[in-house]
Write a protein that binds this DNA or RNA. Structure first.
Lengths: 223, 223, 223, 223
DNA sequence: AATGAATGAGCTTTCATTCAT
DNA sequence: AATGAATGAAAGCTCATTCAT
């Protein structure tokens, strides 16, 4: 096996990356079932024990991947907000688009997000779980504040809350619309028409509606 | 002969019920972790093998429970719609309340719904999975149509779609806000404030907003 | 694999026996290291899971073997006591001989006994450990009482106690004199002369002495 | 140059000591389970690999500790023999007391001694194992001779042998009476009465008896 | 139809030891 | 001489599912 030692911190980070990437690859290849640590090790070209040197449990690997995805998406939106002109009537639409695009590009993010509670958090070190939650909260906070600064109709705190709701909807809708690969060919049935929509298009539709609603309601509350 | 068959069928249904009830009880008792088939069999007073005569896999048991819950909730809302007066300005609010109450009363429904994709559908017979999807679609259709008849501003098909979105949000929000028991005591941290809200209150809040948005947008689209 | 079902109780007992025998064989073959459950299963012609159907932990298997050996030996001595004539001046000597013979015939008993505390009791279900202790105590009691009836010089309770001491010495001496196979060829060194004795002969020698001492002291205490 | 070597040797000895002390501390703290090499290294303030520069295997560390304990105890008794007056009728009793006191003071000695065969000697370099045996033999010899000089009734070689038997009994009795902490609270049961004795008191009792027997028998044999 | 004994792949995890640095 | 990253065999155990009875 690759008995290459990661001595410097950056090498360690690189090896961690190797494991994370291998885990993600297998996760995607295995149609979004959590791969075994054994498989991850093999894919990484490392020994099983080495993986446990970098992550305490299997779930930790995936919680990190999820958190990375979340961070990435948040940063993307943040950039999009900065770039966009809030006076542009298409401001919201642009943001929504960049949001859905970010998610689309991080393959597996949605599946991962969907199993956060039911699977990942179950077998997670207490502190890791908490740290994860805090990071999510932090990102929502920061991004929410940024939004508030651009959309003055949003009251203090409403930005983060709105994002929380958007995120919830994103994950929930995905869970409702997504279905295992093997039954996809049989989804043609007319009865199932309601599920035969393109997820991202649908998501954008609902988001536009909700963001609009948010602004309105918030606005009214102000008056 | 037919008589005997009927009796036999009744017995079958009864035994299925026994298993389902036992599974649900254990699921609730074990704080919403899927119990083992062995435990379900014991709780049912049946042998392990017998359980497999009635359900092809463990997941099938829970998908049936989920579907039953879904049906129950839909029927409840249907009744609520029938009872309510759409001219009453509190019409929407009443519906939303009865919706959240129904869900609250079906303990474990949200957890079950949340694991639908990531866990349940993975190890499910193709036909079972499909049938499940169809039942969900059917209920959404029926209930959607009923809604449309009461809220004329809703276009054809918009009722079902709205319900789909509501359901998605319900499940997604639950996943975001819910957290494992063991980390609940540590949620006091200020950073986590955004997660420290009462789920059902929060849900009602968002739903009110969304339903409102839906009507508006839909209305506008009409004009 | 041998998918032969043990349905009747006697069949179950037989299968348990199969496992116990396989475990003992491996234990002896592997120069008295505890074999893995996996190996025991293979040797038994059973699946690993099946072994766990009959024994909760690996240690339980060996504690049962130890207890069986203990019981066997006690029964043998009991018979020897019954058969012997306490007026015969060689009474004690005969008993000691039958004791050492019993132990010699139960290969591995000593090694097993020697690891009772340091290994076996560590990973043992509380109740199993306790039951084991009770059985040992029970046998000591019974056999002790029998001895007292034959050797009137022994006070009440002194029989069991004497046996406890004899057993302790038996195990302790074995631990001191026994040595791993691989270093046996090098035991010729003169310095090691004290260890180069035949265990059973040595044991008999010490026991004779001790039993004698016991009687004396006890006798004196009486006067 | 020689000077430097001497210093280097001193350092080596010192480092060995550090490791041994750390190992002993952890062993005692962990209620007499063998600690991992990793833990020993950490406790020593050394790297894992460094430990292996000083000891070939983990077991070697503990065999050295056991041997040190043995030496200590022997030296203690030797001193006690020197100090005591063999004409004092309490001579034996005093020796026995100082013996049990020495053992009591070397915490963990008995546990270590008890696992010598079943655990330690298994994974030990041949030479190390042999050296260990030789040291034990040597100590028994020396101490035995000293005893013989004080107790003229002891024939040549009988001293060492007696000590061997005493040591065996000490370890064996400890194994029989000692029990894991977790089952200690449940030892109250009447059946287990025979095990509910104070180890050191019991040991002293048996030893007094045996030593007495030894002298007698030996004496008789002489005549 | 019902049983429950048997299966065995599968899991995570530990840790003594090695060896590149 | 010292380090500690990497190894990987080995372990115990679970449990969904099968199938002989």
């Amino acid at each position: 096996m690759a008995r290459i030692r990661a001595i410097a911190d950056e090498e360690k980070v690189a090896k961690r990356r190797t494991i994370l990437d291998a885990a993600m690859k297998l996760y995607q290849d295995k149609s979004y079932e959590l791969p075994s640590v054994s498989a991850i090790a093999k894919e990484s070209g490392l020994a099983k024990g080495t993986v446990y040197l970098y992550f305490k449990t299997k779930e930790e690997i995936f919680i990190v991947l999820l958190e990375e995805g979340f961070t990435l998406i948040c940063e993307g939106i943040s950039a999009a907000i900065t770039d966009a002109d809030e006076c542009d009537p298409g401001f919201i639409s642009k943001l929504v688009h960049s949001y859905t695009d970010m998610i689309r590009n991080y393959h597996g993010f949605l599946t991962l997000a969907a199993m956060t509670n039911s699977v990942l958090e179950q077998n997670l070190d207490l502190n890791i779980a908490l740290t994860f939650k805090k990071k999510i909260a932090y990102h929502l906070q920061i991004l929410g504040a940024q939004l508030e600064s651009k959309l003055p109709r949003l009251q203090k705190g409403a930005g983060a809350k709105m994002l929380l709701h958007i995120y919830s909807l994103t994950v929930g809708l995905w869970q409702t619309l997504n279905c295992p690969k093997k039954i996809r060919p049989m989804m043609g049935d007319e009865v199932l028409g309601i599920f035969n929509v393109e997820y991202f298009k649908e998501l954008r539709g609902v988001l536009m509606m909700c963001v609009f609603a948010f602004s309105e309601v918030d606005n009214k509350a102000k008056n």
